[in-house]
Amino acid sequence: MATGGRRGAAAAPLLVAVAALLLGAAGHLYPGEVCPGMDIRNNLTRLHELENCSVIEGHLQILLMFKTRPEDFRDLSFPKLIMITDYLLLFRVYGLESLKDLFPNLTVIRGSRLFFNYALVIFEMVHLKELGLYNLMNITRGSVRIEKNNELCYLATIDWSRILDSVEDNYIVLNKDDNEECGDICPGTAKGKTNCPATVINGQFVERCWTHSHCQKVCPTICKSHGCTAEGLCCHSECLGNCSQPDDPTKCVACRNFYLDGRCVETCPPPYYHFQDWRCVNFSFCQDLHHKCKNSRRQGCHQYVIHNNKCIPECPSGYTMNSSNLLCTPCLGPCPKVCHLLEGEKTIDSVTSAQELRGCTVINGSLIINIRGGNNLAAELEANLGLIEEISGYLKIRRSYALVSLSFFRKLRLIRGETLEIGNYSFYALDNQNLRQLWDWSKHNLTITQGKLFFHYNPKLCLSEIHKMEEVSGTKGRQERNDIALKTNGDQASCENELLKFSYIRTSFDKI
C-alpha cells in the first residue's frame, strides 16, 4: 500500500482533458527560462521544448504516446526543470519506465491550478516501474492521483506527508504495488545497510526511497516546507523545498512566496507586481503582455491589467481597466465587458449561442446573426445582446428569417469595421425574408467608422429604411451602385405612401 494514499474509496472516473512563447529569463536562482504550460502528445517531438525550461508557468501534460519505446527515452533528460506552477499529468506514455532521468531536479509542483483537485496525476502508464522524482520536495496545493499503472512499484516507500501538507485526498490505487509483488529495495538494503531515512506512518517504520538508488530526502521537522541542505541544516524561511546553503534567500532552489532578481522575498516591493503567484514583474512586463494579447485571437491570451499590486489576466467583477495605466478602477454604474472572439468572429444561430455573449459591452471581433427560429426570440436576444455598444469588426445579418427588427441591439452605437466582410463591408444584410426595420432612427444613433453597407434580398425592408441608415451611420456616399439592390429590397412591402385627393359631386333626387 502506498504510504499516505487512500484505498478502496469510491472515486469519480478520471477524465483526461485534452506555445513556446518565453516569458522571460528567471535569473540567477533558476538555471534556465520560464516556459508556458505545455500539452505534449502523440510523439516526442515537442518534448524537446523543455530543454531550457527551469519553470513551467502553467501545467505540463505528457500523454497518448503509443509508439514510443524505452530506448526512445534513454537520452532524454531535462535537468534544468525545477518547478511547475500548476500540475504534472502523465497518461498512456508507452515505453517510459521512470522519471528519474527525465526530470531529475523537479523540486516543486505548486498546484496553482489543479487537474480535478490533483497536482500530480500518473494514470495508465503501462510501462512505468517507478516514479523516480527523487528531488520532489513540495506539492504546495492539491493532491496526488496514481492509478492503474500495472508495473509501478516504489510507492509504499514514499512518505507523501513530507511532500504535501495533507495526504487525506491522495488516491493511489490499482498499481502493481497493490499486489505486494514489488519487493522494493532501498539503497544499501541488499548489503544489509540502512542508507535512507525511515519514518513512521500508520504504525509502520519504513525506509523512504524513490528507487533502488535514490533515497527520499527527509528534512528535520523544524525546517517545515522550506527544505534543508545535504547536511540537514534548514533553508531560509522564504525558500521552498530545498537550498544549497542554509538561511540564505539567494540560495533557495525555489521560493515559498515570490522570486525577485535572484532572491526569494515575502512580497513584491514597489515598483514590482505579483505575477502568477510566484514571481515579481515590473510595469513594462505587464504592459507588454497586455499589448501582445490586445489584437491576438490565441486562446488563453489575456490583456493583463494591474489590481491590488498584482498583474492579473482581467479586472475583477465591479472594476474596469483604465487604459492609460492598466489599473483596475471601480465602475460607475454597470461595468464594461470586452469579449474577445477566439477566431475573430462568432455566429449567433440560437439563443444558446447568444447567451455566451451575455453582459458583453464591447465585441472584439465580428458578429454573424443567422437565426431561423426560436421561442420568445426578441426578448431572449435583447437579454443577451442588448448591452453590446461596440463591435470592432463587422455585423452580418444573414438568412435570419425569424427577425423582424434589429432593435434587440438596443445599445449598439459603434461598428468600427477594423475587419470587413469580403474585404469591403462593415454591415452586411443578406436574404432576411421578414426583416422590416433596422432601428427606430428617431431614437437610435449608430456610427460606422469604416467599410460599406450591403443589402440584398431583404424583400420587406424598404429602401427608405436603408437610406436612413446611410445618413445616420455616416456611410452615405461610400456605397457603390450594386451594394444596395434596388429590386430585391422592399419588393414585397408597401414602401411608397402617396396622399390621394378626392373630389365629389353631391346629387339628390331633384338636383344634379
Rank of each mutant, 00 (worst) to 15 (best):
L155T: 15
F78L: 07
G241T: 11
T229V: 07
H226N: 07
V173P: 12
S323C: 07
I62M: 08
Y134A: 03
L240I: 12
M83S: 04
C209P: 03
R208E: 04
F275L: 04
Q245H: 12
P336E: 09
V167R: 08
C335N: 08
C335I: 05
K224M: 05
S317Q: 15
V305F: 09
K217R: 10
P316Q: 06
V93S: 01
H290E: 02
R145D: 03
F103D: 00
V305D: 03
S161P: 02
K67T: 06
H212W: 09
C255T: 00
Q204R: 07
T250P: 01
T221R: 10
R263D: 07
L96R: 01
G183Q: 09
E238F: 06
C243S: 01
V121F: 02
G111A: 02
N257A: 09
L99A: 04
R297V: 09
I146M: 09
L63C: 05
Q276E: 11
M83T: 06
E97D: 04
E180I: 03
C223Y: 02
S213Y: 07
L99N: 00
M137S: 09
H48R: 02
S98V: 01
H290Y: 13
I201F: 11
N325Y: 05
Y304H: 03
R298C: 15
C268W: 00
Y87Q: 00
D277P: 02
L289P: 05
H48A: 04
D288L: 13
P31L: 11
H28M: 09
P269S: 08
H28R: 03
G183K: 09
M137D: 02
R279S: 06
W160K: 02
Q245V: 12
Q299R: 12
C53F: 00
C239K: 01
E33C: 14
G37H: 05
G192P: 05
L50T: 02
Y94A: 08
G58A: 01
K251P: 00
N179L: 04
Y87I: 00
G111I: 00
N43D: 05
G300K: 13
S284D: 02
I306L: 04
S284T: 08
T320M: 09
G37K: 04
Y319A: 11
A254I: 03
E181R: 11
L64R: 07
R46Q: 08
M38Y: 09
F285P: 01
L88P: 00
W210P: 02
I84Q: 00
G183V: 10
L260M: 02
V173T: 02
P316T: 04
C311Y: 03
T189K: 04
L260W: 09
I62G: 01
R92S: 06
E97P: 06
K292W: 08
R279V: 10
R297H: 13
E231W: 04
C219A: 08
Y87N: 01
S225N: 13
K191D: 02
G262M: 08
C255K: 01
S166V: 11
P79T: 07
D184I: 05
R298T: 14
N135G: 14
G188E: 03
P70W: 14
L90P: 00
C235F: 00
K80A: 09
R141A: 02
N117Y: 07
R162P: 11
L326Y: 13
L174I: 14
F115I: 15
L64M: 13
F78C: 03
Y304W: 15
